[in-house]
C-alpha cells in the first residue's frame, strides 16, 4: 500500500508576467518501509515538494494523499529535519527536543521520558542543557533529528539534512541514520530525503526520484537494488551514479514546457 501518493502535483505562482509554473505533473508513491530520495539540480523545487507533502504549502494542481486521505493541512504524522537545523537558539537541547512533544499536549512525565529516549538514541547525552550555538554543526543536526524522531512520525522528511555539514561529519551522520533506520524499534515507517548529492541518495535510499527543473518534473524513478551496506567504490555503485548523473545533465536541453535551459551541468550534483 502506498503511504503517500502524489498525483499530478503542480505548483505555479502569479508573477507580473502572468502565471509561472515551477512544478508540473509530479506523480509517485512513497511505500511502506520506503527510503525514498528525491534528487535533482538546485532550484528544481525539491524542497518545495517536501513541504507540499507535509501540507506546509499547497499544490495548485493535483493532489497528495497520506494513507489515502488528501493532505489538506499540516500533517503531524510527518516530521521534518531542516537543512539549517531550524533550532530555537534560546532553548536548550532538551527544550528543543520537546518542542514538538509539548505541542501534542502530552503529560510532562511522558514528554520527559520520550525526550530522554531520543536524546540517547541520537547520541546527545550530556548535552541536554547546552544551547544550540554551543554545539558543532553535526551535533545541531542530531538535535534536529531527535526533535523529529521524538514525535514518532510515520514519515520522516529530511530536507538536505547533510548539506550544511562538513563532508566527514555528514558521512558519519549518514551511517548513523542508516543504523537508526534499520532499528525496528524506532518510529518512521518511511523516510523521504531531499538531496542534490547523487552519491548520498544511492548510499541511503531504496528508490530515487530523479527530477529536472523549469518547470520541475519527474525524469525517472530509479530503483537502487544494491546490497547493504553499500560500497561507494564498487562498480555497480559507480555505474548507478553515472546513470543518474547523465539523466540530470541530459535534461539540461530545453524542456518542451518552456523555461530557460540550464546552460551547464549543475555543479551541485557532482559527487563529493
Amino acid at each position: 500500500m502506498a503511504l503517500i501518493r502524489l498525483e499530478g502535483v503542480g505548483k505555479s505562482f502569479a508573477s507580473r508576467h502572468g502565471s509561472m509554473s515551477i512544478m508540473e505533473g509530479i506523480t509517485f508513491d512513497v511505500k511502506d518501509a520506503d527510503f525514498l530520495a528525491i534528487v535533482g539540480p538546485s532550484g528544481c523545487g525539491k524542497s518545495t515538494l517536501l513541504r507540499l507533502i507535509q501540507g506546509l504549502d499547497h499544490p495548485t494542481s493535483g493532489q497528495i494523499y497520506f494513507r489515502d486521505q488528501p493532505v489538506e493541512r499540516v500533517c503531524h504524522e510527518m516530521a521534518m529535519v531542516f537543512q539549517n537545523f531550524a533550532l530555537l537558539p534560546w532553548l536548550t537541547v532538551s527544550q528543543n527536543v520537546t518542542f514538538g512533544l509539548e505541542a501534542l499536549g502530552w503529560a510532562p512525565d511522558r514528554i520527559r521520558a520520550q525526550s530522554e529516549r531520543y536524546i540517547s538514541v541520537t547520541g546527545l547525552e550530556g548535552f541536554e542543557e547546552a544551547y544550540p550555538r554551543e554545539l558543532s554543526g553535526g551535533m545541531r543536526q542530531r538535535v534536529g533529528l531527535a526533535r523529529a524522531l521524538a514525535v514518532e512520525p510515520a514519515v520522516l522528511l529530511m530536507d538536505e539534512p547533510f548539506s550544511a555539514l562538513d563532508p566527514l561529519t555528514a558521512e558519519s551522520l549518514r551511517e548513523e541514520i542508516l543504523q537508526l533506520w534499520r532499528d525496528p524499534a524506532l518510529p518512521p515507517e518511511a523516510v523521504v530525503l531531499v538531496t542534490h548529492n547523487i552519491e548520498e541518495a544511492i548510499q541511503l535510499a531504496d528508490r530515487i526520484v530523479v527530477m529536472a527543473r523549469r518547470p520541475s518534473h519527474v525524469l525517472e524513478l530509479v530503483e537502487v537494488d544494491l546490497p547493504r551496506p553499500r560500497d561507494r567504490k564498487s562498480t555497480a555503485f559507480y555505474d548507478l551514479t553515472d546513470r543518474v548523473y547523465s539523466l540530470i545533465t541530459e535534461s539540461g536541453v530545453p524542456h518542451p514546457h518552456g523555461g530557460a535551459p540550464s546552460s551547464a551541468a549543475p555543479s551541485s550534483s557532482q559527487p563529493l
Binding site: R51, Q54, L56, V74, H76, A79, M80, F82, N84, F85, A86, L88, W90, L91, F99, G100, E102, A103, L104, R147, V151
Partner: peptide, 27 residues
C-alpha cells in the same frame, strides 16, 4: 525572524500561545 523557525513551528504544530512564548517573543 528566520523563516526556518516559523516553518519548524508549523511543521511540529506549535501555534497560538506556545508559538508566541517560545518562538515569536524570544525571537
Amino acid at each position: 525572524l528566520p523563516p526556518d523557525l516559523e516553518e519548524a513551528s508549523r511543521s511540529f504544530g506549535v501555534k497560538g500561545r506556545d508559538f508566541f512564548a517560545k518562538v515569536l517573543l524570544p525571537g
